[in-house]
Design a protein around this nucleic acid. Sequence first.
RNA 1: CGGAGUGUGGCGCAGCCUGGUAGCGCACCUGUCUCGGGGUCAGGGGGUCGCAGGUUCGAAUCCUGCCUCUCCGACCA
Length: 574
Amino acid sequence: MRASRFHLATLKETPVDAEIVSHQLMLRAGMIRRHAAGIYSWLPLGLRILRKVEQIVREEMDRAGALELLMPSFQPAELWQESGRWDQFGPELLRLRDRHQRDACIGPTHEEIITDIFRREVNSYRQLPVNFYQIQTKFRDEIRPRFGVMRSREFIMKDAYSFDLDKDAMQRAYDIMDQAYVSIFDRFGLDYRAVSADSGAIGGSTSQEFHVLADSGEDAIAFSDQGDFAANIETVEALPPSSERAAPNAAMETVDTPAMRTIDDLATGLGVSARQCLKTLIAEAEDGGLVALVLRGDHELNVLKAERLEGVASPLRLAQREQIVEVLGNDIGSLGPIGLEIPVFVDHSAAQLNDFVCGANQEDRHLVNANWGRDCAEPASVDIRNVTEGDPSPDGKGQLRILRGIEVGHIFQLGQKYSESMQATVLDEQGKAVYPYMGCYGIGVTRVVAAAIEQNHDDSGIIWPDALAPFQLAICPINYHKSEQVKQAADDFYHSCRQQGLEVFLDDRALRPGVMFSDMELIGVPHRVVFSERGLKQQQFEYKGRRDDSAQDLSLDDLDGFLQQLFPGQCRAD
RNA sequence: CGGAGUGUGGCGCAGCCUGGUAGCGCACCUGUCUCGGGGUCAGGGGGUCGCAGGUUCGAAUCCUGCCUCUCCGACCA
């Protein structure tokens, strides 16, 4: 590709609304442009990268035996009513009516459609196993789209659906997809982790997420420093402390704590550590009342664990301040478990404390040296917190480390949820109609692009892994339009690269070198070659890898050898 | 959804308080001198000032309504 024929649309300034680096760089590099909240066009440069991701996904899915098809975005309501999700799905489902007043939606996912296809097309166990997939646009009407294509309303997803006769076969299909995902993410060249996960709204049991590691990731993942254990932090069990609780050392006292409303205020004001304090959260109960959730001051509540507790409303809703004041007769900021008249759930770690600090349930007062068993009833302790760095791994091997990740893939075992609700059956060997077991497997194709940038960039711009780069190699001739010699060398090299099947970008714009260099760095081309009069005089050209600190001068005599070394397996040695 | 902002050439912004017919930087076009890290100088094109209504001799500016987009939002209890 010649720059003069390509729409290179780089921006010098960073658009003010882009918060995260991948969004900023995608805009600056001219990959995407926004039309409305969470709605983007992919410009030619961005599309090249998107297609790279798609192609790798497609090749590995095909290799794993999945069959590509294409389903509609516009989906009739009847199918969603059959599965029951027309009512279950919230406002994220974009609903609309056609001219005949028929209800429909723009698909946020395709379980209903694929099940409809399956029940019409597949009738016999002899046709199983089967796994259909597509790479297609989804629409989810997010409350608050942000971070560019990381959380957009319209996005491209690869979604696959497997159908099997029984659970064991479903497990085999799932394992094959697990392997395919490993191959896919390996080929992307990204640093990633597969972790076990909660299956959320899609339903089903076993599920695993694939996260691209990046400090800016929205999810926390916990993994053992010694074993294979790795999971999304929201699912990880916090083991109860192994040691006995220490005995009380001092009598409980009430102290004035004016204007100390947060754990930090309290710890600083009283000169104790946050882990010696209790944090008392008030949530709504199933019966409309309130419950208290008590944690150590330095711990965070795990919402999934809390809403699974008997008597706690699910989904979890933290109580409104007004309701707390009305029912408990006391404002937030000085609540504690001692003397509370509502059900109290105490986290294992909080129940382990002795001589702790907690709210006195009186305005601006706290208790110090409070003790379970002595100053109030012995609590029934539960696991309601997020694990933290250094906690023991639930599999008993080593300690937990915590990293941040961006969820780009998720694989589920769905079981018979959709085949039953939508009456999709096949005949088994006995000629009996049975509900097949399904699995579903997603990859956020657009999100992979953003995640790759989030993980690989520097002050100059994007640094694509080779497999995703829009161009493999950039040629920057200096004075292309003035020097016949430079033009000749650059053109020759360009043609020879193209003959070898390389995706090469020749910057033939009449620009100063600084502009060319910064553009090529911004859009993240992994390799750069420079031709100049100065170098040609000495029979040399210059090479710099995107991550290299400085360039090196190489001999013109061995351009072909250079290419073979740079792109082994792709260039002919002729 | 609740709260806070915002809307002026493609992008980033000033002008608004104190009404007088729109300006700056980047980008773009022409020419010029430069030519190995986002250059110089000169000239130029491009704007229904979010939309609708109102006040006024006169509205980007004041008033009313609507819309858009952005940010923040319950681990502080």
